[in-house]
Design a protein around this nucleic acid. Structure first.
Lengths: 164, 164
DNA sequence: TTAAATTAAATCGCACGCGATTAATTCACT
DNA sequence: AGTGAATTAATCGCGTGCGATTTAATTTAA
């Protein structure tokens, strides 16, 4: 049952690259696993994990334009518009076209939306308690992820065949 | 228009938990960013990032049942069945019901599917070169992610209201 | 001042993820 | 053998993500 394929420096093609290859999957898997852990805690509030992410931004900065949420969360209007419409249907936000610039849609929190912040306040703690992940490791992991994000953001988009 | 509650006062609720809250977002954002970096390199091969993940598993272990891929990638048949059908349409895999157990569908690599491994071999290197992320950091990040995964996997699914 | 470029959302299409259910097959137990 | 539990994929429904295009409003440049 236990394959030893994860670390096979013997004859593998350039061990460093293999490791880089391995980095992508834990990231993909861990992200989905975290989403799954949040889900049962968010379900009683009627929201999904991406909606929770957006609400965290709004709890800090509402009212703000859709584009601002997009910058913070790295999401486009193609994702945010339907998501925000769902939050509006839940009466957590209101979408108002800006008076000064009719192109902009400002997202406002409703009273329910603000109240939700209190209801969600216990979630991080509940998760941290359930998962036995040491706080110091969390700090390091976050620092590493921030560093990775910085590198990824400034990275030139690689092209397929032609080398520059 | 600026409420004092939005910006966190110094008496915030347990700084450690706030950090834990912060961990979820970088994970979510980094995972999507990595996917986006892979995409232009995978597009010429006609495959998506999740398809690439599945193919990496198959390059190691094909032929194997759908359920085995699901265990390795933490994906269910609801995700894998349509994904594998697309890989089959691309002539990268074949789906054959097992003779010994008719419930099982074994996934085989085609010649094209095997050839794809060579074509994709340069991708990790290309990315590693494009992103200036130090190898040593990648090692540490992977180690942290593996540790997190271990904790998440063994964690009891947290329930909303009632404890335990 | 109008035409062109720019910007912000919305829309469209497709491919995940995943909770839930269904259908078919095999296993276990009497 | 026979019935019920368990297992494996497939299916359904919904909500993202995201490349691409569209629409509307604003800025700019001519």
């Amino acid at each position: 049952m236990q394959d030893a394929m994860t670390t096979e420096p013997k004859g593998g093609p350039t061990p460093g690259l293999t490791l880089a290859e391995q980095l992508c999957f834990p990231l993909y898997a861990a992200s989905r696993l975290v989403t799954r852990l949040y889900q049962p805690l968010l379900a009683p509030l009627g929201i999904t994990y991406p909606q929770y992410i957006v609400l965290m931004i709004l709890w800090e900065e509402a009212p703000c334009p859709v584009s601002h949420i997009g910058l913070r969360a790295n999401l486009g209007s193609n994702t945010l518009t339907p998501l925000l419409k769902r939050l509006e249907q839940l009466d957590y936000v209101r979408r108002c076209r800006s008076a000064s610039d009719e192109r902009v849609v400002d997202i406002h929190l409703t009273d329910s939306g603000r109240a939700l912040q209190q209801a969600a306040a216990c979630i991080p703690q509940a998760l941290f308690d359930a998962v036995g992940y040491p706080l110091e490791d969390a700090r390091q992991l976050k620092a590493q992820l921030d560093k990775l994000m910085a590198c990824l953001s400034t990275a030139p988009l690689p092209d397929a065949g032609a080398g520059d």
